[in-house]
Amino acid sequence: MSFLTRVEAIKDLIQEAVDKGATSVEQIHQAIASMPLDALAKRGLLEDKAESVKQSHADTIGTVYDAIRRVNREVGDLATGLIESVEDQIATQKNINKKD
């Protein structure tokens, strides 16, 4: 396995870990964040807006973690592009050396 293949495998591993980590943290965040809203709703302090408030809050949290996952994908795509460029450069250099 070439060095660049290993680098790309490590990149994929890190990217997957960040994605899964963001999803796990989001689930925990959603569960913890809903607790005070559930308590307020139980006491009737949110009146008829309880579900709307809870959904809005959950959507906001989801948007943040979606952004984290999107940035992770973009960084992964950028890293893949850089690795491919280096591989192309190496192949080109080998072809130039063969012609000499």
Rank of each mutant, 00 (worst) to 15 (best):
V25T: 12
S34L: 08
T80W: 01
R69L: 02
L40Q: 02
Q27F: 07
V7F: 02
Q30I: 08
A41T: 03
S52V: 02
S24G: 07
D66N: 14
E8I: 01
L13I: 03
I83F: 01
I28T: 14
R43V: 02
G62Q: 15
R43N: 11
N95I: 05
R69I: 03
V18G: 01
R6T: 07
L82I: 13
L4I: 07
E47N: 09
A50S: 11
D88V: 03
I68L: 15
V53L: 06
G76N: 02
D77I: 03
E84T: 11
I14K: 04
V18P: 00
A17L: 11
S85H: 06
R70H: 14
Q15V: 07
V7E: 06
V18T: 05
E47Q: 09
E8P: 00
F3S: 09
R6P: 03
S2A: 11
N95H: 11
A50D: 02
E74L: 15
D77N: 15
N72F: 07
M1W: 07
S85C: 06
L13V: 06
L45F: 12
D88I: 04
V64A: 13
L45Q: 11
R6G: 12
I90C: 07
D59C: 03
K11G: 02
H29P: 01
D59P: 01
K99I: 14
I28G: 06
L82G: 09
V71F: 12
T23W: 08
S24T: 11
K49E: 09
I32R: 09
I90V: 15
R73S: 09
A41C: 09
G21S: 09
L45Y: 10
F3I: 07
G81S: 10
H57Y: 10
Q93N: 14
K98N: 10
A41Y: 01
Q30V: 06
A50P: 00
E74C: 03
A50E: 01
S34Q: 14
V75E: 02
Q89A: 15
E8D: 13
A22P: 00
K49T: 06
R73P: 00
E16P: 01
E84S: 10
E47K: 13
D77P: 03
N95T: 10
S52H: 06
E51L: 07
Y65F: 15
L13H: 11
N97H: 08
D38R: 10
K98L: 12
